[in-house]
Amino acid sequence: MKIALPDLAAMEAFGQQISAKLAPGDVVALSGTLGTGKTTLARAIIAALGHEGEVPSPTYTIIETYDGLPVPLVHADFYRLEDPAEAAELGLDDYREGAALLAEWPDHAGGFAHEPNCLAIALEKVGEGREAVVTPGTSWQSRWP
Rank of each mutant, 00 (worst) to 15 (best):
A88C: 09
W140K: 06
L22R: 04
T59W: 13
A29M: 09
G111W: 08
P106A: 09
R43V: 12
L81I: 08
V133F: 13
L123M: 10
T59Q: 12
L119K: 03
E124Q: 14
I63P: 14
A42L: 00
V28P: 03
L101W: 08
Q17A: 15
A9H: 12
A47G: 12
V134Q: 07
A87D: 10
A85Y: 14
A47E: 11
P84K: 12
T36G: 15
L102S: 01
G25L: 03
A87W: 11
K125S: 15
G111L: 09
I121P: 00
D77P: 13
Y79I: 14
S142F: 08
G53K: 04
V74A: 00
G137C: 02
A120M: 09
G50V: 08
G91F: 14
L101R: 00
L34Q: 05
E52Q: 15
G91V: 06
E86C: 02
D83T: 15
A42S: 13
S139T: 11
P145W: 08
P116G: 02
P145D: 13
Q17E: 15
E104L: 00
Y60W: 08
A122T: 14
W144I: 02
P72T: 11
R143E: 08
A87G: 10
G98T: 04
A13S: 13
E104W: 01
C118L: 08
F14M: 10
G37H: 00
E104T: 00
A48S: 10
I45G: 02
P136R: 05
F14H: 07
E97G: 04
A20K: 13
E54H: 12
G129P: 07
L92G: 04
L8I: 11
S57T: 06
L123V: 14
L30P: 01
G98H: 03
E115P: 03
G25W: 10
G50C: 06
D94W: 13
V134P: 08
E89H: 13
W140N: 10
V27G: 10
A132Q: 01
A20G: 07
G15C: 04
D67V: 10
A76H: 03
L102W: 09
G25K: 01
F112G: 07
T39K: 08
E64S: 14
S31T: 15
I62F: 13
E54N: 12
I18T: 07
K2V: 13
G37M: 01
L49E: 05
E82Q: 15
R80V: 07
V28H: 07
S19R: 12
A44N: 04
I62W: 08
E124P: 00
V28Q: 02
I63A: 06
V134I: 13
P56G: 12
R130F: 01
A48Y: 06
L101Y: 04
L92I: 10
L119N: 01
D7C: 11
A87M: 09
A42W: 05
G110Q: 06
T135P: 04
G127W: 00
A88W: 15
S31E: 14
A10L: 05
T40D: 03
P145F: 10
K2F: 09
L101E: 00
A99V: 11
G15F: 04
L119P: 01
H108F: 11
G110V: 01
A132D: 01
Y79S: 12
G98V: 05
I3Y: 14
L102A: 06
L22N: 04
D67G: 12
A132E: 02
D26S: 06
I121M: 06
A23G: 02
V55T: 13
S142W: 07
